[in-house]
Design a protein around this nucleic acid. Structure first.
Lengths: 219, 219
DNA sequence: ATTCTTGCGTACCGTACGGTACGGTTCCGT
DNA sequence: ACGGAACCGTACCGTACGGTACGCAAGAAT
């Protein structure tokens, strides 16, 4: 892959640089710091260009979401044959990645922005964030647990329900807490391990650690 | 208990009425609709009184959170002797109540407000909402699972971790989705039942429905 | 060289907000 | 009956935002 190949079809490099500045402002100062004048000043561009490129403020916010989503690509090279240990390893990797993504500065800032903008009727931003932000993660996890089932390592009726169970076990109320300003976990890996343990106890086909503690990482 | 005994020490009835109007405005129109002028008009009071009573805008928001929290009281009359069925019943009731509370208009609006106001450093609002809003629910659930353990019906090392597991199984990512504008579940009871099933499979001391479907509520 | 495009910098406009000040009214204590 | 506190309605102020308009410089095309 060419290192400077720009896969993002939406915007020119200049516009991407502006969006990067917009994200920086948003992360550093919250929504109130993301003003058209401030962005123009920070990105060395004119307000007129902003409106020419993104239409209006909501267009800018949408572009920021799309830009950020395009930056996060999930590696889904999982052609290998699955064993129980391999499945567990992949699940824990997914859990750690998920926790890391959710705790990221930009993710939190964008979620705060969309939620703050969101009303009872559901804003465009919310839909967009859910669609762009979650699709990658969802697909990766669904593919993984589907593979686990086909390999006879997992057992469930509804893949969607099983995925939601896994998600809940991993994240619990941590996401909302962080959105409200609380600091994240001190050890994501530990949480990931516990969540996968529980998930395999619920949906695994082999004896899990529920009774006998696992050999690794003695607590 | 006297029917009009006002347990809220913070505010006078008049002020509570104003706060009620403020919540109404917030629920109906989002944060942008909650303006001092608008509230004064809707509540038939003067802006001067608003600032006299609540100090400034943040004081008003804090007062709204406290007011709403004071309205939600959890009945914790659980002196009865616990059996396995009773524990399950109480857990499911808790789950249903939790889902109902989180999906409530006022709860969603206040959470959106606090999150939107929240920066990286954590705002006063976020802390306040977490403290006032979660304490009741947390205490009720912790008391319940603690009782379950003492009765020999539950098994876990860390009560806090077990509670977070329960919470995650019940809520998953539903809260964030609703905050972003998605509609809630169609059947909270079903979700509650599944979550409690899973929780008891993980932490119960008796054979659960993991292999044999329960007799009640055939899916 | 001339034109045309692009976009920067700045000035500007209307609006709406948070917060304050003031006159008039109601009500309560004395 | 009188005085003062509480409070309503409205007008007001400074500010800062989203969005628009204009002047000018730099680069490409012809």
């Amino acid at each position: 892959m060419r290192p400077d190949a720009n896969d993002m079809p939406e915007f020119t490099p200049r516009q991407n640089a502006v969006l990067e500045q917009a994200l920086r402002l948003l992360v550093e100062g919250g929504e109130k710091a993301l003003t058209t004048s401030g962005l123009a000043r920070a990105a060395n561009c004119s307000k007129e260009s902003l409106y020419k490129w993104f239409g209006d403020r909501e267009g800018l916010l949408s572009a920021m979401i799309a830009h950020q989503a395009a930056k996060v690509r999930t590696h889904e090279r999982s052609g290998e044959r699955l064993t129980a240990d391999l499945l567990r390893e992949h699940l824990e990797l997914f859990a750690r990645d998920l926790l890391e993504v959710l705790a990221g500065d930009v993710s939190l800032a964008l979620n705060r922005l969309s939620i703050g903008q969101s009303g009872p009727g559901g804003s465009k931003l919310g839909k967009l964030l859910l669609e762009h932000g979650r699709r990658q993660i969802d697909r990766r996890a669904m593919a993984l647990i589907d593979q686990g089932k086909r390999a006879g390592l997992l057992r469930f009726e509804n893949a969607d329900a099983a995925y939601h169970t896994l998600y809940g076990l991993i994240v619990s109320d941590l996401h909302v807490r962080m959105l409200l300003g609380e600091p994240g976990l001190r050890d994501n890996a530990r949480q990931a391990e516990r969540a996968v343990d529980a998930f395999l106890t619920l949906h695994g086909t082999q004896k899990q650690s529920a009774d006998a503690p696992r050999v690794s990482a003695g607590r």
